[in-house]
Each structure stands twice: as C-alpha cells, then as structure tokens.
Design a protein around this nucleic acid. Structure first.
Lengths: 162, 162
DNA sequence: GTCGTATCGTTGTGCGTGCAACCAGCATGT
DNA sequence: ACATGCTGGTTGCACGCACAACGATACGAC
C-alpha cells in the first residue's frame, strides 16, 4: 500500500538541497522581474536592451560584432538582429559595416545610447545592490563567484556558439 | 581627457560583486538550458511541463487548482491554461471540475503522467545534482538556502498573484 | 583561379508567454 | 431576493525568442 503514489523517494532532494535549488530558481525569477520592471518604469528600457548598451559601452570604441554581442548576452543571432533593430530604431545604437570582414556588422553606441545607459546604469546597479548584493556578506559573494564558475563550465557551456 | 567615455565609475560594481552577480545570471541561463535540453532529449518533456507534473505529484490527490499551480510554477494564469491544454492533450494530466467552487478546475495527474514523471524525475534530479548541487559543499548549500530566502522576500515578491 | 566548406547576419515561421478583456460563479450587504 | 464587487479560468492579441533556411563573404585545398 505504501507503494501507491510516492515510491522512489530514494532520488528525491533533501530539504537542504531543495532549498538551495528551488531558491535559486525563484530568486532568479523574482530578481529578473523586479529589475526589469524597475528599469522599464524609470527609463522605459528593457533589461535585454540594457545589457546590449552595457556591453557596448564597456567594449573598445563602444562597438561589438553582432556575433560576439549575441553570445555575450546569451541570445541567438536572430534574436540579436531584432533586438539591434529595435535599439537602432530608437537611436540608441547604430550599425557600422566592418571593413576587415565584409560580412560583419558592428553594433555601435550612439551618443544618445551612451546617455541613456549612464542614467539607466545608476538605477539598475542600485537595484542589483539593494535586491541582491546586500543580501550577502563579502565572504559569501566571494564563495558565490567561485561556485558560479564551477557551475558554468561544468554545465558544458555547450550552449552559445551562435 | 579621462572624462571621455567611462566616467561615473563610482557606481560600478567591484570585480567581486560582478563575479557574483553576472555569475548567477549566466549560471541560471546555462543550467536552465542544459536541464531543459536534457529532459527534452531523454523524455521529450519540457521543463515547464515537468514542473507541473512534479507539483501535482507532490500534491494531495495528485491534483491542484489552476490558480495555485500557476503561482507555484511562476506562470501567469493564461500561460498555465495553455500549458495544461498541452499536457492534457498528451494525456499526462486531466481537468477535473471542482465541486466546492463551480468556477474552479483541478489539474490532475493521470496514470500516464505519473509514470512519465517517475522516469523524468530520475533524469532531472541527476542533472540537478551533477550540474548544480555537486558544485557546492553542504555548508555552502546551507548558506545559499538562507540567502535565497532573504533575496526572495526582499524583492517584494510583488510578482505572482496572477 | 576555382571549388567546397565554414561563418556572418538576416528573414520566414512557429511557439510560449504576458496582458487585458471577458464571462461565469462566489460572497457580502441590504 | 437582489445588487455590487471579487475571484477563477479562458480567449484575443502582441511580443520576444529560437530554429532553419538563405545569400553573401571568407578561407583553404587543389
């Protein structure tokens, strides 16, 4: 009778594991939603757009190849094409041909984009601090950083490439 | 001249903070993709579908109200309606009217769904262990569990409720 | 030079999701 | 009993994304 509905408990997660795992899923979901809403509210900017601007700002000459940008922000090439379309339409970035490779395109920050980012960055980083970073001690952050690296290249990283 | 392109560093994240924060974003993305692919590969089941089956299996009588289920798996009500549609079409769950409240619907696990989950659970939990849990020590997991709680209810949790 | 293969970016298409609107049914007050 | 407001689930619609196919260009072998 005990074999009815919940056999196979042998592989289930312990409460400890469950808290750590599901906690991460929920925390990520909640954070992403909160930060995105915050950014949209304050600057009418989506999180994905913010990421593009940020990577561009931190790149040499404020420009990056579509390809590299796509893998930086974990988006498919086609997804990036459209995202760049939208941002270009808003005048925040522009496309620049690549002279070294005629197939290539650069996405390049415009002055408007630079300003937009400067403003958004303040909001966003404040949010990240308030909602995430402040919940950890420096030691914990240190630990996290290392653990993420283990997780990331443990998971094959087989995604991306394209 | 130093005022050219990257002023306002004052609010930027320290390398420590950056590693912890971006690491989480990437880790989550990589994990989600890997686990989803794995589940789809092995059992032709999406992660969101798996979550539904799992919550149902763990619920009393293997059934839950649409509403509760939606907030459990962090999905909008409309999103859940369609997800349940798909799962019902595959015969893994069924809709059952609620006698206490004529508006209500239960999503209920079918025998086929129960079997599907039993198989998928093994795969999925093995994946979670291998890709995530094993990268942390028990102490670290303990710390994480607590931290996630702080993060989650710090972030307002203003999402959900539909 | 030319051919075959790989890579870059774009486009067509389908899918999953959220939001808003909607209807049916509950709950409360009078 | 009836009116009002609220809740649960579904539907129309728009959006963002991935996948596959495509044209253009690069790179290498011959």
């Amino acid at each position: 009778m005990a074999t009815m509905s919940s056999v196979g408990q042998s592989h289930l997660l312990s409460p400890l594991e469950l808290r750590a795992w599901r906690g991460m899923l929920r925390a990520h979901a909640v954070l992403a939603k909160a930060l995105d809403a915050q950014l949209e509210e304050a600057h009418n900017l989506q999180l994905s757009s913010y990421e593009v601007l940020m990577y561009l700002a931190d790149a040499e000459h404020e420009r990056m190849r579509m390809c590299d940008l796509a893998s930086s922000i974990l988006l498919s090439r086609s997804g990036l094409t459209r995202l760049v379309d939208r941002l270009a339409r808003e005048g925040l970035i522009e496309r620049v041909a690549c002279d070294a490779d005629a197939r290539g395109q650069f996405a390049k920050l415009t002055p408007a984009g630079r300003e937009k980012l400067a403003a958004a960055r303040i909001t966003h980083l404040a949010g990240v601090r308030a909602l995430f970073l402040e919940r950890f001690t420096p030691e914990e952050l240190e630990m996290l950083g290392g653990a993420w690296d283990r997780v990331i290249d443990g998971a094959g990283y087989s995604c991306c490439k394209t």
